[in-house]
Nucleic acid binder design. Structure first.
Lengths: 254, 254
DNA sequence: ACTGCGATTATGTATATACATATCAGAAAG
DNA sequence: CTTTCTGATATGTATATACATAATCGCAGT
């Protein structure tokens, strides 16, 4: 017959039996932190205390605590113990969705239209759009597209693709499907930068979106790199009332 | 004299001697993935191969690989090995900075002004602004503030604070310092939601910001919870040309 | 009271070992 | 020729152990 206290705890708290012990310890502690039960500054039980509480070895407890420390939820100090950290960075995770998914989530039929397609040698402006690069860019593909939600234009896409990074794009027809989803399947990207801002629609964009010139728009620009090399730059312009970017943050993922 | 191959590798790749061995293994592999040397689908050397390569035990290698798997960079399959994953989620980390820091980064003197302060029982609108809550909100504090960059208004802040969550706010004077930084030091928050959108300035906001009515603005709204309880809702309104939100993503942090 | 030093303590990292589990390849049986 | 069984393999988790390191406490000696 094993130690009764430890066994009862193992069965009553944490997750089901399928999750590993260190994961259950991690979850237990994380839950107590995010629920506010253990406030910032609170000293978490020492490893040897948790070892006794869960009836396991120190390595198992250590694995859970180390990962919590790496996730930034706790701070570990030698000789003193582990303490709940105050969340200090105002960070949030921003998920960029596919426009098709976004439109269909609104219950509207999605339609895509290619307006213009140009292949050219990269100009200075093009290089600037693609962002910092170790090598000089060669050919680029410039695309202008329109995404519809039902009968109304939903957003304008203005994209530049580096053919040095994605030579296959030269042979690709972007009549039926948008370049975004195609590129994701084609090129693994290692870094991305987003800029979100507001601006008045210029006359051309306003015409495309069926807006009055000068109407407020939300502009999302994204640069993508694959292995240090610029892949693409894209600018989405949405009418102000059509779109909002939502970002959430919870320390519950780890 | 120790084993030459292992020792040479330990000395030539990865970081300096201060970083731990598992961390160096982790870095080495991560670097090869993000540099594109190991493309998605590539089979990473087996644990026992890395064990031989680094001259260490399997546990050490396992720790590095497990963490890479948790970070989403690789996928581990029993009996088959570990494989480089294709980055599939278009997620980015969004950092929200303090406005003071933001203004000072532009090289402009920062000034803050409290325009209005009201204490009242939470209305239906207030409850809606604070977001989903298990309990009914009591008293709230409503603040309107103006942040200046030099002599020009930089952004309007419209904030609601739940006094049930932060009773200390009732006694606080927000004349000299903005409520944002004060709240961060006061309340540990466990969840946050951001909405970023564009809109025309309403006449009141336009007047505060010195804009023409209907001028495009960037609006950032943030709701914050502490232990499931709504803490605050804030809406920042920036003139379109004053501000942009930047978000970056690299898998290099882990 | 102050200073220095050693003992204590909690964490940090690494090892050898053990057994569980999913999965695949190939052998054995039908 | 197909199905089933079995063994090999790589990962997943956990343990006991060991030594390193940083920080702190308390004691001894000035």
């Amino acid at each position: 017959m094993p130690d009764s206290t430890a066994e009862m705890l193992e069965e009553t708290v944490g997750g089901d039996a399928s999750t590993s012990l260190y994961q259950r310890i991690l979850n237990d502690i994380r839950d107590r932190i995010v629920s506010g039960e253990w406030e910032p500054g609170y000293r978490i039980p020492f490893e040897h205390e948790l070892t006794a509480e869960y009836g396991c070895s120190r390595m198992t407890v250590n694995k859970a605590l180390s990962q919590l420390a790496k996730a930034g939820l706790i701070e570990r100090r030698r000789r003193s113990g582990s303490f709940v950290r105050r969340p200090q960075s105002q960070a949030a995770v921003l998920e960029i969705h596919d426009i098709r998914v976004e439109v269909e989530a609104l219950g509207l039929p999605y339609r895509y239209e290619l307006m213009a397609q140009t292949k050219r040698r990269a100009t200075t402006v093009d290089r600037d759009r693609l962002g910092p690069s170790p090598s000089t860019a060669g050919q680029v593909l410039a695309l202008q597209c329109l995404h519809y939600a039902g009968v109304r234009p939903f957003c304008v896409e203005d994209r530049l693709i580096s053919l040095a990074a994605v030579p296959e794009a030269a042979d690709q027809e972007f009549r039926k499907s948008a370049p975004g989803p195609w590129l994701i399947g084609q090129v693994p990207w290692s870094a991305a930068e987003h800029v979100i801002r507001a601006a008045s629609a210029d006359s051309e964009t306003a015409a495309d979106l069926g807006l009055a010139s000068g109407a407020p728009c939300l502009i999302i620009e994204r640069r993508t790199w694959s292995a240090e090399r610029p892949v693409t730059h894209v600018r989405f312009t949405y009418p102000a009332n059509a779109h909002a970017v939502v970002a959430r943050f919870t320390p519950s993922d780890s």
